[in-house]
Design a protein around this nucleic acid. Structure first.
Length: 425
RNA sequence: GCGGGCGUGGCCUAGUGGUUAGGGCGUCUGGAUGUGGCCCAGAAGGUCGUGGGUUCAAUCCCCACCGCUCGCCCCA
C-alpha cells in the first residue's frame, strides 16, 4: 500500500461490478430524454474560468472556493467544469442555437469537478445528468423538466422521493425584498450565527437556508418572499404547481428553499429522499435562469435546467435494493490441451465470435481441471473441449455446463452451428 | 473550511507492550495420468497506512501527516 499510487482524494474507480448501475442510468436517460424530445450535447471537460465566474457568480462557493482552476502553457485561465449550465449556455450562444427552432431542449452527462471535502455522496469528481431548455419562459417547461427527472427516478426503481419547489421571483422585485430582509435582520445581527453574519451583507437570501439553531427564531418571523411575489412570478409559480399536480408528482412548496447559484430566478427545485435527513441527500436540483444569457453577453434568453448526480442516484438505488445479477462473461469457453491446440482454439474462437457467440479461450498449458474451473467462474453456458482425441478426429466436445453437464462430440465444422442452435432454443 | 470515528495480505476480520501476526473469502496448484460447480490438501500474498517519538522492546502507547468515513458548511 504505502508508496503506491492511489486515486486522488475524492475520486473513484468505477469497477466492473458497479458498471450495471451506470449502464442502467445511461439507458434510462436515453429513454426519458427521448420521451421528452431532448437531444444530446457534449461540452469540453475544461472551459475558460471566466465563464463560471461570470455565469455561476464569483461569490458562490462553487466558484469562489471549489473550482479547479489552472493556467495552461499558453497562459489561459481554465477551469475543470464545476457545473454544466454555463457551459451549455455558452454553447447555445457560440453555435447560434437561437436560430434553431425554439425552445432548444438538450441534455448531457458530464464529469463535474469541485474541490470540496469528500463524504458520502460527495466527491471531487462526480458525474451529472444535466438537462436544459433554452429559449422559453413558459411555466409549463418548468414542470416538464421536473417531470422528466421524476420519470427517470421512477424508471430506476427509486421511490420515497419528494420535489421541493419554490419561487425566488425575478431580480427586480427580489432586490426590494432583500432590502426588506436586510432591514429585518439588522437589529438582530449580534444574535446570529457567524455564517449568517457574514452572509447578511453578501447574500442575505441564504440566511433563510441556515440550519444553525441560533438563526431559527429569526427565520420563522422573517418576511417571506413567497408572501410578496411579484404578480408575474406568482402566476408563473401557480402554473408550475398546477401542472405538477396534474402530472401526479408529489411536491411541497418550500418557501425557504434557496439555491446556491446566482443566476436563478423564479422556479427553483430539489428532489430529495423523504427518508434521508442528511444535508447532501439531494439527488437532483435546478431552476430557472432567465438572466444567465445576458450575463454571458448574449441576448436575453430564458432558460431552465437541472443537474442530478449519478453517484447519488446509485446510492438511492442501492438503498432501494436495486441489484443486478452477475452477467456471464461469455457464452462459450474453449478448454484446450493438446500439442498445438492453441491454433485450433484460436481459430474456433474467431469463428464463434464471427457468429455472434461471445467466447473466452482457456489459458494455454493449464490443466483441464483449472481451465474448467475458469470456465465455471466465467459463467459460460458451454465448454468446448479441444483435446488430443478430438483434434485427431477433427472434432470437439460440446458440454453444457448449466444443464447437468451433458456433452456431445461435434465435428469442428459443425460446432458453431451446434452452439447457435443450442443457444436459440 | 470546522468537528467526531477509523486505518492488520485483493476483500472481510481476530489479536497482544516482548519468540515464526491467526482465521474466513478470493487467487493459484493438486486430490494418479483428459473435465467445472461441493469437498479435501498445499502454496503464494502482510516492513500490522506513512514518518517521528516514548520504551530495553511496539502492530498494539503518544504526535504529525496521508487516506477513508460520519456530521456541519456547500452542493449532485
Amino acid at each position: 500500500m504505502a508508496g503506491r499510487f492511489q486515486a486522488p482524494r475524492g475520486t473513484q474507480d468505477i469497477l466492473p461490478a458497479d458498471q450495471p448501475y451506470w449502464a442502467a442510468i445511461n439507458g434510462a436517460i436515453l429513454e426519458v430524454t427521448r420521451l421528452h424530445g431532448f437531444r444530446r450535447i457534449d461540452t469540453p471537460v475544461f472551459e475558460h474560468a471566466g465563464l463560471f465566474e461570470k455565469g455561476s457568480g464569483d461569490t458562490t462557493d462553487v466558484v469562489e472556493k471549489e473550482m479547479y482552476t489552472f493556467k495552461d502553457r499558453g497562459g489561459d485561465d481554465l477551469a475543470l467544469t464545476p457545473e454544466a449550465t454555463p457551459a451549455i449556455a455558452r454553447a447555445y450562444l457560440e453555435h447560434g442555437m437561437a436560430s434553431w427552432p425554439q425552445p432548444v431542449r438538450i441534455y448531457t452527462t458530464h464529469p463535474m469537478f469541485r474541490y470540496d471535502r469528500p463524504q458520502k455522496g460527495r466527491y471531487r469528481q462526480h458525474t451529472q445528468f444535466d438537462c436544459e431548455v433554452l429559449g422559453s419562459g413558459d411555466a409549463l417547461i418548468d414542470a416538464e423538466v421536473i417531470s422528466l427527472l421524476w420519470r427517470l427516478y421512477e424508471r430506476l426503481g427509486i421511490r420515497n422521493l419528494q420535489v421541493r419547489i419554490n419561487s425566488i421571483d425575478d431580480p427586480e422585485p427580489r432586490r426590494a425584498y432583500i432590502e426588506r430582509l436586510t432591514e429585518y435582520y439588522a437589529p438582530h445581527v449580534d444574535s446570529l450565527s457567524e455564517d449568517s453574519k457574514r452572509r447578511l451583507s453578501r447574500n442575505p437570501l441564504r440566511l433563510l437556508d441556515s440550519k444553525d439553531g441560533r438563526d431559527q427564531p429569526f427565520k420563522e418571523a422573517a418576511p417571506k418572499l413567497s408572501d410578496q411575489l411579484s404578480e408575474p412570478a406568482a402566476a408563473h409559480h401557480r402554473v408550475v404547481m398546477d401542472a405538477l399536480s396534474v402530472a401526479g408528482i408529489p411536491f411541497v412548496n418550500d418557501p425557504l428553499l434557496v439555491r446556491g447559484l446566482d443566476y436563478y430566478n423564479r422556479t427553483v427545485f430539489e428532489i430529495v429522499p423523504t427518508d434521508d435527513e442528511r444535508a447532501q441527500g439531494t439527488i437532483g436540483g435546478g431552476g430557472r435562469y432567465d438572466g444567465l444569457m445576458e450575463l454571458l453577453g448574449g441576448p436575453a434568453t430564458p432558460g431552465i435546467g437541472f443537474g442530478s448526480g449519478f453517484e447519488r442516484i446509485i446510492l438511492e438505488m442501492q438503498k432501494h435494493e436495486v441489484t443486478f445479477p452477475e452477467a456471464a462473461l461469455a457464452t462459450a469457453f474453449i478448454v484446450h490441451r493438446a500439442p498445438d491446440s492453441h491454433r485450433a482454439a484460436f481459430k474456433l474462437a474467431g469463428d464463434l465470435r464471427s457468429a455472434g457467440v461471445s467466447t473466452i479461450v482457456g489459458e494455454t498449458g493449464r490443466s483441464l481441471k483449472s481451465q474448467f474451473r475458469s470456465a465455471d467462474a466465467s459463467g459460460a453456458r458451454f465448454a468446448v473441449i479441444l483435446g488430443e482425441h478430438e483434434l485427431d478426429r477433427g472434432a470437439a466436445i460440446l458440454k453444457d455446463l448449466r444443464g447437468g453437464g451433458a456433452q456431445v462430440e461435434v465435428p469442428l465444422d459443425g460446432l458453431v452451428r451446434a452452439v447457435a442452435t443450442a443457444t436459440d432454443c
